[in-house]
Design a protein around this nucleic acid. Structure first.
Lengths: 222, 222
DNA sequence: CGAACATGTGACGGATCGATGACAAACGTC
DNA sequence: GACGTTTGTCATCGATCCGTCACATGTTCG
């Protein structure tokens, strides 16, 4: 729980512990981010008005590397704040003073979903795109049965595209999923797609699998 | 959206459609459950006070077979109701009157999680308008099964119209949703509709799908 | 019947987009 | 520590697209 008001923070931590939770507090965003990195909690509560780094920025910072459920607990009940917090990556937003029973009920609802998400481990069999075979597990790509040497980045890129056959992925999506960047130069994707094409397409000018959809992104099709 | 008050239900459905969602309403829990079984929505909004089967029971009934995100929209702000609804299986709880911006922000946050749980593959089905097929995912348009080359703007325009079959969208609405403009020359829409017609209509003088409704705007019909 | 308004469409210049080769830094291997 | 490989940045070029305008056509109403 990241909250600068000592009284509120302590009482909420105590109330949560009374309900059977293991809770700990941080008085600033910096402290909260540090402990979350060092010893990740499975849910984060955060106030919006914090000294120094504010709640919105704190949420974005957590989201950069962590998919943990985030609940905002704020005194402000303005729609703009609610929307901004949710857009920043929060999962829920409660207005102070919060009823502890409501808070725990919302935490349970949230963790029900988060748990379901964490439970999905997809072991992918060989993906076949005509003469192109991709083994996500084996780290192998074959063209007409012949192994093709692709680099790690190219392979990840290919797998990401192969997991959504025929679906266009934007450069932004690929940057996020392959590189983990939330910001960055989208040209980077072009370059790697180009390099990948040299290896898996017979005619790079008329690609059969790794297709450009102008203005939208790239897709892999059969 | 399951809500017995006609006024509220209609205004919320319209507001959601204005935001770009495809929404439909049901006046009773029974009706809502039936349509959800027949044609499942990807998110359910439900009121608590319903005639006959009430909201709590409705939530439990949906949860028996469906993991769809459920949001309660109720006039009651009692902690007991909130806790009971969340315990029954709801994912979020908003108190009327709801700000449409907050509702959509919460829907986005919720669907962000639900999507992750579903295994990342949220495939939008192909939209079919007679001989015209649109694949929002694949960035692809087909006429009689033959791929048609459309530009990004044309594609967005087409998708926007296709999401609301038969419904007239004003130039202003299209400017906002396709271009993101709040102000701008509405003639711009005309030009792109014209160009799109050249590609997807056999006789542009007598369009069969992309129809002008004089004085109001354009619509896409089967 | 004619004016005002709404819509269709061709043309054009500037803006944008994507492919690619060159290069330097970072990385990994021996 | 040296070498080859991989990666990210940059600049350039050609192709395409976009938005605006002008004019033609069609429609509504006084």
């Amino acid at each position: 729980m990241i909250e600068d008001d000592d009284r509120i923070r302590l009482s909420l931590v105590l109330a949560l512990e009374d309900e059977g939770y293991v809770a700990r507090g941080a008085a600033t965003a910096e402290e909260g981010l540090r402990t979350q990195r060092a010893e990740p909690a499975d849910t984060v509560l955060v106030d919006l008005m914090l000294p120094g780094v504010d709640g919105f920025e704190c949420i974005r910072e957590i989201r950069r590397s962590d998919d943990v459920p985030i609940v905002v607990v704020s005194a402000r009940d303005d729609t703009h704040d609610i929307v901004a917090a949710l857009e920043a990556g929060a999962d829920d937003y409660l207005v102070k003073p919060v009823a502890i029973k409501e808070l725990t009920a919302r935490l349970r609802a949230l963790r029900r979903r988060a748990r379901a998400a964490a439970g999905v481990t997809t072991t992918v069999p060989t993906l076949v795109f005509g003469d192109l075979e991709i083994r996500p597990d084996g780290g192998e790509v074959r063209l007409d049965g012949e192994p093709v040497a692709v680099t790690r980045t190219e392979f990840r890129l290919l797998c990401e595209l192969a997991q959504h056959p025929g679906r266009v992925l934007s450069r932004q999506q690929l940057l996020e999923r392959v590189w983990g960047y939330t910001v960055g130069d989208e040209r980077l994707v072009d370059v790697h797609v180009g390099r990948l094409r040299q290896k898996i397409e017979r005619d790079t000018a008329a690609p059969r699998h790794l297709v450009t959809v102008r203005g939208l992104g790239y897709k892999l099709q059969r």
